[in-house]
Amino acid sequence: MSVILTFLLVIFCFGGWWLTKNHFLSKPWLEHGAPAASVDSDASHRQTAKIGLGVFLAVIGSLFAIFTSAYFERMGLPDWRSFQLPRLLWVNTGMLIACSAALHCALIDARNGFLVPARSGLAIAGVAGLAFVFGQLAVWVQLVNEGLGVSATPAVTFFYLLTGLHGLHILGGLVALAMTCASAWRTTAISELAPKIELCTIYWHFLLAIWLAMVVVITGWAEDIVVTCSQLF
């Protein structure tokens, strides 16, 4: 359970920092009066969407952290056998990185007011994202053809489970991306577009990070790293 506990520790540290920023030591019974109104109501509106996304990502993070904990616990049991990962996985990983990069470029373009390059960035990201999904499906097909069905070994089951769950989140991201694309092609007001692209980009970067973490876990590198580190002491 160490993975999820570490994750929680990070969250709690963040929470503690946030509390200190919000004057948790103040004495409200002595205070009186109201602060001046905030001027930029638009900015705080955008902030709301971003914070909503942030909280959502924390929940997804905790979901994958718990899965990883369960993975390591199960891995410690005697019947664990690892299996050969299909090569295609690396191509897919490349696709996901490409998708994140394209979105990032789109975001920078949109911020600088270039509509057309932003649109093409979004389109490339969409294609790369779809390619990732189909690539993952192809990996599943390969595994099944090799005789590694869902219940073959615990490692294989976990592989399907983690890639499947990650894939579902990717599908959700694709829907959001499609909606952003739709509004990118409809409007010419780039200032409205940039915040939407920003939300998409944050989400996709996060899913990329989760994916890389999952790769480290599934390939067994995580274990190697832990072993190497423990030998240092």
Partner: peptide, 15 residues
């Protein structure tokens, strides 16, 4: 609560 006198707060403009 604020350095400003509390009586003279501008009207509510919370989004």
């Amino acid at each position: 609560f604020t350095p400003k006198a509390a009586g003279a707060v501008p009207p509510a403009e919370v989004p």
